[in-house]
Simulated scan of single mutants.
Amino acid sequence: MHKNVTSAAVAVLVGLGTAAVAAAPAQAAAGFAFDDRISGADRFATAVAASKLLNPTDGTTTDAVVVNGYATVDGLTASYLAGLRSAPILYTDVPGVPAATAAELERLGVEHVWIVGGTDRVPQAQQDAWEADGVEVTRLAGADRYATAAAVATADDQGAPEQVFIASGTSTADALAAGPVAWARNYPILLTEAGGVPAATAEALQDLGTTNRVVLGGPGAVSDSTYAALGGRERISGADRQETAAKIADDAIAHDSFDSQSIALVGGTDATAADALSAAPVAGAGGVPLVFTGFDGGLGAGTATYLSAHRADYTTSGTGWVFGGESSVRQSTVDAATAAVQ
């Protein structure tokens, strides 16, 4: 089940009308812009917009992953599960399934809903309603975020994955930055505490059986002693979430066949985490890495430096995506990103 993005994404890329990864010589970035915004009226509608980009043809998608739109920590690792099923990530809310989500599930022709999170996040009544409509439902949940992540990571029975990501369960941006790679390459994401390894995470690592364990985030997020206890083989980290995301992007390009000519910009605050999560399937299918805006809503020094350093890579064959509306990524920030690559 561990597909390679270079083969799995080609059909999707053709459907999206974007260019696949190609060995073309670097050119100046003249004409490249962050001018493809994927957004809706709210996080639910933005997730639907991403789903429509991933799956433009009605009635052709059998699986969808559903998480609570206001408790995305339960869904931090859902990008891996969605990748296993070539599925979008859609959002629900405790009072009821938003109309936009319900309509998208109907449009897609979903036959199997994968819920990530317990009944306090996605009520049993919603599961019952889907099942009453003839939809198969599988719920993956645990006693806490660490156990939920472990349940997601061990849901596949296709053997040991090539690699496992491990990120902080409280500093959630690092896991989100790796979402596209997890989707495309079927790398599970497990969560840890900064000062110790939760029992559920340790058990999942043993069950998965892979020794290629990549820790995301610096010692402030995952201490050196915890890194050692996890059996980490590599740490990808920067001074902050922006720099860590940039280094994850570089690693995805260098080792996971991601497209160096394209880049996606998402909000870098905890409040915009939902947009980053729902972006993972589209970005993963296209082999497009994610970078974050600054915590204050501006472009931020880390991302500005990264984009400027890679300006020669971004060509008119690539795409500059923005996920989320102006409340998540201001147009002035988008303009600053475009200026950074010129």
Rank of each mutant, 00 (worst) to 15 (best):
Q342R: 14
V329T: 07
Q163N: 10
G109A: 11
L53N: 08
R43A: 06
G287F: 09
V266Q: 04
H2V: 11
T244I: 11
V67M: 00
A149W: 02
A71P: 02
A276M: 09
G300W: 07
A102I: 06
A276H: 10
R85S: 10
V322L: 08
A20M: 04
A50F: 06
S79I: 00
A194K: 15
G287N: 11
A26C: 07
D240V: 11
V288W: 07
I38E: 06
H255N: 15
A184Q: 06
S79V: 05
A26W: 08
A82Y: 00
T148R: 00
A178M: 10
G15F: 02
A125S: 14
S86M: 11
G218Q: 00
A202I: 05
A78I: 01
A9P: 02
N55F: 12
Y314M: 10
H2P: 12
G220L: 02
V67I: 15
W183Q: 01
V14S: 11
A271M: 04
A264K: 08
R107E: 10
S328L: 07
P123Y: 01
T77V: 09
Y227Q: 10
L84N: 03
A339I: 02
A274H: 05
E162P: 01
S327R: 13
A301E: 14
A143S: 13
G294C: 04
K3S: 09
A273F: 13
L81S: 09
L90Q: 00
P56Q: 12
Y314F: 15
Y187H: 15
R311H: 14
I189D: 01
Y306Q: 13
G300V: 11
T269N: 09
A200Y: 00
S260N: 10
A178S: 12
R241Y: 02
D36Q: 15
V113H: 06
G83T: 07
A8M: 12
E131K: 15
S237F: 14
A71L: 10
A64N: 03
I89K: 04
G169K: 10
G118A: 07
A8I: 07
A33C: 01
A249L: 03
L84M: 14
T269F: 00
G117Y: 01
G302Q: 07
G238S: 06
Y227S: 07
A339W: 02
R107T: 05
L176D: 03
V94E: 10
Q261Y: 10
T72K: 01
E193Q: 14
N212A: 10
A147R: 10
S260E: 13
P188I: 02
D35G: 13
T92M: 01
E234M: 13
P180K: 05
D296T: 12
A254H: 04
T201I: 02
W321F: 15
G159I: 05
T319R: 12
D250G: 12
S168Q: 02
R235V: 08
E106K: 15
G118C: 04
V266N: 03
D36E: 13
L299G: 06
S86N: 12
W183M: 03
G232S: 11
S225F: 13
R213I: 14
R139Q: 09
A177N: 08
G118S: 08
I115V: 15
L53R: 15
G169E: 05
W130R: 09
G17S: 03
